[in-house]
Simulated assay, not measured.
Amino acid sequence: MAVKLPPLIKVAPWALTIALFLFWEAVCTGLSIPDYLMPAPSAIWVAGVEYAGPIMMHATQTLFTTLAGFAIAVVVGMVLGLAVGASPLIYQACYPLLVGFNSIPKVAFVPVLVVWFGIGTVPAILTAFLISFFPVVVNVATGLATLEPELEDVLRSLGAKRWDIMTKVGLPRSLPYFFASLKVAITLAFVGSVISETVASNLGIGYLMMSASSSMNMPLVFAGLIVIGVMGVVMYELFAVLEKRLTGWAHRNPNAPG
């Protein structure tokens, strides 16, 4: 039976968020900070209402590129994770290359992608993919590679083949790792798509923020930042709910953070 969270825990995120915005508003108003340096939340709200149409259009584009890159990252990450986690040989061969590739700042790939595919949606999708697939690979591989040797010995003694162990035990056991990686990867995918949009696109929240900053419209810049943050939180919570529903058996404490 699911244990309900105490009311205080439920309202804590909302209360802290409101308190931070009130503090932000008080500091900007009390110190008379100009909007072109640090806009107050009230000024950001006005800009959000005024530019609601363009913000919605660019946010839709960013969400599309992020989800497209994230979907590719999940597929590629799953395949690589299964290969790396199931085979010690592939693990030893591929893991140093994956770590080295992940260490390269992904913004460095954007000019290359622009040369290959031109300015637009494709570089944003590929940047989101490049920056988000590594957590999926690592977590899936970890879930498979950390299967207890004693359990494997028992299953083999019962006649199970390597494929049976991986598909019937290894894969279900790696699901908590997989869903944990999705929560990390989706936030990184937003980072990748916005980075590309600021450099090599004429659509998206990143492009909107760059255009607004060039005209010193900082309330609109911060409105774009908040929109990205909200989309990231929503997608994170979506995967957290899926994780709890599909891998509830792996969580002993139902009140633990998702």
Rank of each mutant, 00 (worst) to 15 (best):
A124V: 01
G170K: 13
A124T: 07
G170E: 14
T127W: 00
S181F: 06
F178I: 00
A189G: 04
A160I: 08
V184H: 03
P123M: 04
G120W: 11
L89I: 13
A93W: 09
V136Q: 02
P123Q: 07
I104V: 14
L155H: 06
L155Q: 04
P88Q: 06
V140H: 10
A108C: 12
C94P: 05
A93R: 11
G204M: 09
D153R: 14
K183L: 04
Y91Q: 14
M166F: 12
D153W: 14
T198D: 05
T142H: 11
L97F: 13
V191P: 06
T167K: 15
L144W: 04
A124C: 12
P176D: 04
I186N: 05
V114E: 13
C94Y: 11
F109T: 10
K161T: 14
L171V: 14
V199Q: 08
N202I: 15
K168R: 01
A145E: 11
D164R: 01
S196H: 05
L113W: 00
F179N: 03
E152R: 15
T121V: 13
S157Y: 06
G204R: 00
I119W: 01
Y95K: 02
V114Q: 11
V138K: 03
P96V: 05
L171Y: 06
V110E: 03
V169I: 14
S193R: 04
I186G: 12
Q92S: 13
V84I: 15
F117G: 07
A128V: 05
R156Y: 00
L182S: 00
V154C: 02
P88Y: 07
S157Q: 12
G118D: 09
A93V: 14
S196K: 01
P111A: 03
L175E: 01
F190C: 01
A160E: 03
A128G: 14
S196C: 12
I104E: 11
P111F: 06
I90G: 06
E197M: 09
V191K: 01
R173M: 15
P176M: 07
A141E: 10
V140R: 12
S87H: 01
Y177K: 10
I165E: 12
A160M: 05
V184I: 15
P176S: 06
D164L: 04
S132Y: 00
P123H: 01
T142Y: 12
L113H: 02
L188R: 14
V169Q: 12
S132T: 03
A124Y: 02
I205S: 06
F133C: 09
I205N: 07
L147H: 10
L97Y: 14
S132Q: 07
A86R: 10
V114K: 14
S174N: 10
S157E: 04
F109D: 09
S132G: 01
L97P: 03
F178N: 08
A180R: 13
P96Y: 02
E152F: 02
T146G: 11
G120M: 08
I195F: 05
T198K: 09
K161D: 04
A141N: 05
S103I: 04
G120Y: 03
